[in-house]
Design a protein around this nucleic acid. Structure first.
Length: 355
DNA sequence: ATTATTTGACCACC
DNA sequence: GGTGGTCAAATAAT
């Protein structure tokens, strides 16, 4: 839509800049004998990811919709297909609340991007322990569940656990796929503005052992996440194929379908952050990404993604996240931090937005 | 006691 | 009136 908007442009610049910075890091590692192969490969992948994303942005701007150029499951644009609107932000709420009366009267003002919205299909991989839900690095709180017409499974509604404390308006909806019960469609609305949205790289060194582990998790997570959409597509099929074996209960004990819920529920989810998604998908639209993930690790993609450590680490991360661990940050490379708020991530509850 | 989840009710939109 | 999204009281978990 329209030409390269400010947001896209900044995103593009960010990606390119990041690619450059990562390349520098890689160079440094090359000079350090002790650097692990793994680390360098990760860097390399991130670099590639940045360029991929940059290209995606460019492609997006040249062709209207970003179509999936990658084989198989792709990252595909879906014209805001999901729930067109929402109900009611009667109170403070909500991400997409563009229904400010003023908005209606002045559709003009609305030319700005709607709340970022994108969907990920998150398969579950085998061997997932019962109460180890997926974690996307954010802490979520479930606030509702609804049976959806035509859907076999109910849809769960989650909001950022920091909504009250930090006014973070990010929400997500989780729904088990009809066709493949082992796939969850996770739709994110809005971007995190809470501290968890901070990119791992911005996290100050942590002191505790625990935190260090988490940092490691995050880094790995970030790395994998940054690359996932682009690099993973091919692998996904493999991953999904493996899925049919596992009892779903094991995958998501906390999912709506499974009453025996644990407090872990909120943490369940996919692995892609909202922040970063817009990098390859216009935030103005919604997109769908297919994402393999499992609580025990993304076995299916490990080798290819070079995120081996994600397995165990993610598990740790999850347990941490489950119990309201705030130290988890997973901004996953969201580009512009606060700057972003001006644009796509920006939610519509900021007065500045309408004036 | 505190915090998170469940679930029916409520609301806005179509 | 039907539907999807959210609220909030009740309940469960820790």
């Amino acid at each position: 839509m329209e030409n390269m908007g400010d947001w896209e442009q900044r995103n593009l610049i960010y990606e390119l800049t990041q690619g450059r910075e990562l390349a520098k890091q890689l160079q440094l590692h090359l000079n350090v004998p002790s650097s692990s192969q793994e680390t360098m490969e990760s860097l390399l992948q991130r670099i590639q990811g940045s360029y991929e994303k940059a290209l995606s942005i460019l492609k997006w701007n040249t062709s209207v919709a970003m179509e999936v150029q990658t084989a198989g499951l792709a990252t595909r644009m879906v014209e805001a297909p999901l729930s067109p609107r929402s109900g009611s932000p009667r109170s403070e709420d909500s991400d997409r609340d563009n229904k400010d009366p003023e908005m209606k009267d002045n559709p003009k003002k609305r030319r700005t991007l709607p709340t970022p919205r994108w969907t990920q299909l998150v398969p579950v991989t085998p061997g997932t322990p019962l109460e180890v839900p997926l974690d996307d690095g954010f802490t979520w709180r479930k606030y509702g569940q609804k049976d959806i017409l035509g859907a076999k499974h109910p849809r769960g509604y989650y909001r950022c656990a920091h909504r009250n404390a930090q006014g973070c308006l990010a929400t997500k909806q989780v729904q088990r796929s009809d066709e493949d019960p082992l796939i969850f469609e996770i739709t994110y609305h809005g971007s995190h503005t809470c501290t968890q949205a901070v990119s791992p790289s911005q996290i100050p060194p942590s002191s505790s052992q625990e935190n260090q582990n988490q940092d490691a998790n995050l880094i790995n997570q970030q790395q994998s996440l940054n690359n996932l959409p682009m690099n993973l597509q091919k692998e996904l099929r493999v991953v999904t194929e493996d899925l049919d074996v596992i009892p779903q209960q094991q995958a998501y004990a906390s999912f709506p379908d499974f009453p025996p819920t644990s407090n872990v529920t909120t943490a369940f989810s996919s692995s892609m952050m909202g922040k970063f998604s817009p990098s390859f998908i216009s935030p103005a639209e919604s997109g769908t990404n297919y994402f393999p993930m499992s609580a025990t690790g993304i076995h299916g993609v490990q080798e290819n993604l070079n995120v081996q450590s994600s397995g165990p680490l993610i598990t740790d991360t999850i347990s941490a996240a489950t119990s309201t661990t705030n130290s988890l940050t997973a901004g996953l490379g969201f580009p512009f931090g606060n700057i972003e708020f001006e644009d796509p991530n920006f939610t519509f509850n900021d007065p500045r937005f309408f004036s």
